[in-house]
Amino acid sequence: MEFLINAQELYEKISDVIIIDTRFELLNPSKGEQLYKEGHIPGAQYFSLHNDLSAQPKKHGGSHPLPDQDVFLGKLSEAGITKQTTVVIYDQGNAMFAARLYWLLEHYGHRSKYILNGGIAAWINAKLPITSVVKRPLRQNYQEQPDLSMIVNVDDVKASKEVMNTILIDARSRERYLGKSEPLYRKAGHIPGAKCFDWTAVLTAEGKWRSKEELAQIFGELDPNKEIILSCGSGVSACMNYLALTALGYKNVKLYPGSFSDWISYPELPIETKAE
């Protein structure tokens, strides 16, 4: 698929791109940066989900709000990225955190960007070099405005329930969707009306992306003529479904950044635990 690059292709172009390492663990927030310092793809810069790809959570807005514009663009500038830069993003292997950065770059109109298929695990399996040396690129000055048409808020989601032309999907596991398990939040279940499309289904058992034909089978019931709102726990794994749907040609796809963690911050809003 167009947004993917494999390990050998990246190795051959490594001097022409800027590489971003987004490894992260939700239950161990310092682990990703620790792994980066121990060894990363040569030249890679580190972006943290908590520090660089999200703002600090507040009462509302979810547990991983979109980063402040100046902070995010400052991080791109610090990494030596310009509007013309080709950016290659990777994480451990499943691409969830890489997808968050990919979506953010899309949100700010950055055109040339790829995800390393299979992440650093694929790079290591290809016996390509790893380093612990951290390089400091020449700082740039990245200036751009976000495309606000790509996002919706809690009021939009509430209003969408009255609109037949909108589909809300939830990227979390079916167990969390049904409220049988919830490791991160004080309430369990899903936003009423949401359909479950577990983000891990877009990947093979080896952590590589499925083909377009396979993705078309997974998402085939979704009408491309309708607006599709993506949600998950906090707007991160939903970006995987964004990549899949846009690769299939869906045009009217929007992210609810706050997702379930924002929804449950309003005690008056209902929660469902039955499949829809």
Rank of each mutant, 00 (worst) to 15 (best):
F219D: 11
R136E: 12
Y185R: 05
A216M: 10
E213Y: 02
K161P: 00
L222E: 14
I218R: 14
G193W: 07
S132T: 08
C196Y: 04
A194C: 06
L222M: 09
L184F: 15
P224L: 05
R186C: 02
D170V: 02
V157A: 04
I191L: 04
L184R: 09
E213G: 02
K195F: 13
N225Q: 13
T204S: 12
K180G: 06
N141E: 09
I218M: 11
K135Q: 14
C196K: 08
S231Q: 12
I228M: 09
T200D: 15
I229Q: 11
E227N: 07
P146D: 01
D156V: 00
D147W: 00
T246H: 06
A201I: 06
R174H: 00
I151G: 06
S234M: 07
Y177R: 08
E175P: 01
K158N: 11
G207C: 05
K180M: 11
I228C: 07
Q143G: 00
P192S: 02
S211Y: 05
E227D: 08
A188K: 15
E144W: 05
Q145N: 12
V236L: 09
V133I: 14
H190Q: 05
E227G: 02
V157F: 01
T246C: 06
A194K: 10
T246W: 03
L230A: 09
L168N: 11
Q217Y: 03
L138Y: 01
C239Y: 10
R174P: 02
A188L: 03
G189T: 05
K226G: 01
C232V: 10
Q140F: 02
I229G: 12
D155F: 05
L184N: 14
V152D: 09
E213R: 05
R176E: 04
R136K: 07
S181I: 03
W209N: 13
K158T: 02
D170I: 00
H190L: 01
Q140C: 09
T131L: 11
P137H: 02
F197Q: 09
V134Q: 08
S181K: 15
G189L: 10
I151T: 13
R139E: 08
G207H: 08
N141H: 06
G189M: 09
A216Q: 12
S211N: 08
R139W: 03
K208R: 14
E214I: 03
M240P: 08
Q217K: 15
A244G: 15
K161F: 01
A201S: 15
Q145C: 08
P224I: 01
